[in-house]
Design a binder for these strands. Structure first.
Lengths: 93, 93
DNA sequence: TAAAGCGGTTTATAATATAAACTAAATTTC
DNA sequence: GAAATTTAGTTTATATTATAAACCGCTTTA
């Protein structure tokens, strides 16, 4: 049986990746609202995705307020698609 | 966003459930081989599925050798199907 | 200028997954 | 027929993960 990429096999990281697959860019606050996660949890999980090279998180400003914008990378896109394929084995889709 | 049932959102338990969805019955040794898991891990995860009421695990004999046979329950079947539906939200299937 | 809010990060804790060590019975080997 | 090996698991210890709580620096508002 195929392995399920453990980096993606996590509820919150999967939700984030799924959003970023469809949205070209999303900031921290948006991801937090969409996923209904706490800021702490989101921060930790985003770090893991960044470290894996699956997303980028760029800090910038909107006026004087900080804003962290996330993008999916080509590598992240590929990993997500591979994960979906592996999951199909488990779910018989 | 829908919750992913944490009892099913585990690689090994999901693999076991997927097998039992399609197989009417499967014994411990068969599940161990199919999932390529260790006996210890499988034993623990089967217990959790039994405690959740998702499967039954019945001990019996084949000649003098013990044999644990697993079946999925109606509740397990329903939970699996619900999990698949929830996952589709995450994967855009 | 004190207090409250925003956008996060760090850290502590609880839950989970996993393998390693163990057990008890059966089978094989010498 | 006793010792070693295998089989079918269970229990326990450990590493990993997820999560929330506490915190931090800056900004706005009262």
């Amino acid at each position: 049986m195929k392995e399920l990429n453990p980096l993606l096999h996590s509820q919150l990281r999967l939700a984030v990746m799924s959003i970023l697959m469809n949205v070209e860019e999303a900031d921290f606050v948006y991801l937090k609202e969409k996923t209904e996660s706490t800021a702490g949890n989101l921060s930790v999980q985003l770090d893991k995705l960044v470290n894996a090279g699956y997303i980028t998180a760029t800090k910038g400003f909107v006026g004087k307020k900080t804003r962290t914008v996330c993008h999916i990378t080509a590598q992240g896109r590929a990993a997500f698609e591979e994960y979906v394929e592996a999951l199909k084995d488990y779910l018989n889709l």
